[in-house]
Nucleic acid binder design. Structure first.
Lengths: 286, 286
DNA sequence: AACCAATGGTTCATATACTGAACCTCCATT
DNA sequence: AATGGAGGTTCAGTATATGAACCATTGGTT
């Protein structure tokens, strides 16, 4: 559950949400062998999500597969730096206040969320469907913000705390198509995790989808990450003209008529263009 | 420069800001000896501030006093986890997108900023002066949000990226007075860094200030952190009835008349009470 | 009441993985 | 071409992280 959803549920209305059935394996890091202590500790933070806000020592041990003593020492050290805080009675850990402060520092210098949020909101309002922006972080996408106008009884659920895979989302496809070539190569060479039966797990099929995205300037993916969800994505470019993130609109497949898709497409392209410009990006020359 | 300030300056008007003259020594960690690798790496993140958004390897080495190779390895590992990102041309590092995502996760579970922001805004509007909320993190305060109605030509500058000391701020005094007793003992035993000539650096003077704060239920400090700034602070309590943070209103000393102070005092007490209740806190019984 | 399982946390010998002096490369200035 | 400063890399040595075994507490079951 993401931020605004949490809020809505608490205070007003509980709307029906499309239930998700992902095969969702915990994205394992590619290289378990050579991993520094810092990475091991920081990865603990990734086990938190909107639906799992509190995690105890034992659960961390189970999730991470590491030794209890090690995990405990990492937790203590993270806590000492404000990245975690411990509930003194339940002894469970949750994300700490340092994250708030540091994210505010980043936003002060690079007001990405502030810039992108109105664009996402407008896009969602214009299309009447869930829109979200994500940006590239390593070989995955990190959500920046999302908005759902909630015009309909059924919505696409979007968990802002979850990292998005590149090969199974329309945002990811847009980034693969217009992003760094070596990223494309790395993803095609790596394991393509299936989330639904329709996830493109065959490299050739993914390559074809990327090529089509390059041709059309916009990506489209149906039921590849969530069942019953269709989405389109458009790249946001950085100053060098490489995709650094993407804007996306997701709609329950039942509502995804060709006309609706076309309307979304136009809004999406305009919004992504605006986002690129606002963030000081440049469109690729080739 | 904090978030909204940055924004205001960019888009509208550049108002005169009270210049600050702190002796501001970089807060050194207390125990340099026993420090794990994780802490060493995470401390690198603290060198970022609103005014120093980009830091290169050599500058990190200078700031941290550690070996270049070590720092570099830490930076690489932080970057791999999205806590930093490197500008490919300048090779300088800045805070990464993972912080945005994780802070969103925390806010989803514990919408502190969302809850506190309207209270701070109202408080600032009601008093006509800068208001901010901070919460305890270790032995310092971490800003949560701030708002300045900007009614006057001179404002107090507030850097949301900077951690606040407990002994030199009204917020800190409020937390010391109503927070955990061992925290009080630790701060009184430790070094009391002077920021201005009026900073209470004598333990007995600080003890007296704490006692007065306990009596009056509200703290007051003049020119102890920033010259020419007077502020009052009120504690926000957690579920156990211990102060976990504070609300504060800061005003340029020239405007700090007794009447104004009394008006601020009343608004501040009401706002802090509301914040405690909204965050599920309880007032101390004793 | 005794038992069991599961929780959070600690100890300490072991050896892994972190450290740092020295080195390399690139680039702008002198 | 020499200098200084930038970012980055190497590798021996050892500081530092690791994990099996341990303890303490809690809550449920027999």
């Amino acid at each position: 559950m993401n931020h605004w959803l949490h809020y809505y549920c608490q205070s007003w209305v509980f709307l029906s949400i499309i239930l998700l059935h992902r095969r969702a394996p915990r994205a394992a890091s590619l290289d378990e062998s050579a991993m520094g202590t810092i990475t091991k500790a920081l990865e603990l933070l990734n086990f938190f999500s909107a639906s799992r806000a509190h995690i105890g020592l034992s659960e961390f041990v189970r999730l991470s597969g590491r030794d209890k003593a090690t995990v405990h020492r990492h937790l203590v050290e993270l806590e000492a730096n404000g990245f975690l805080e411990q509930n003194p009675e339940s002894r469970a850990y949750r994300l700490g206040p340092a994250l708030l402060r540091l994210s505010a520092v980043r936003e002060a210098a690079l007001p990405m969320r502030a810039v992108v949020r109105p664009i996402v909101t407008d896009l969602a309002q214009a299309t009447g469907e869930l829109a979200h922006a994500s940006m590239l972080q390593g070989a995955m996408l990190s959500p920046v913000c999302a908005f759902d106008p909630r015009r309909h009884g059924t919505q696409v659920s979007f968990d802002q705390s979850e990292m998005l895979p590149l090969h199974a989302t329309s945002s990811g496809l847009a980034v693969l198509a217009f992003g760094p070539p070596d990223l494309r190569a790395a993803v095609l060479a790596g394991r393509l995790t299936p989330y639904t039966p329709d996830t493109p797990t065959d490299p050739d099929r993914l390559r074809a989808a990327i090529a089509r995205t390059r041709d059309e300037g916009i990506s489209r993916l149906d039921q590849a990450f969530d069942r019953e969800v269709s989405s389109q994505g458009a790249p946001i470019f950085d100053a060098r003209g490489e995709a650094m993130g993407a804007l996306s609109v997701a709609v329950p497949s039942v509502r995804a008529t060709p006309e609706k898709r076309a309307a979304i497409r136009d809004h999406l392209i305009a919004a992504a263009r605006q986002a690129t410009l606002s963030l000081g990006g440049a469109f690729p020359t080739t």
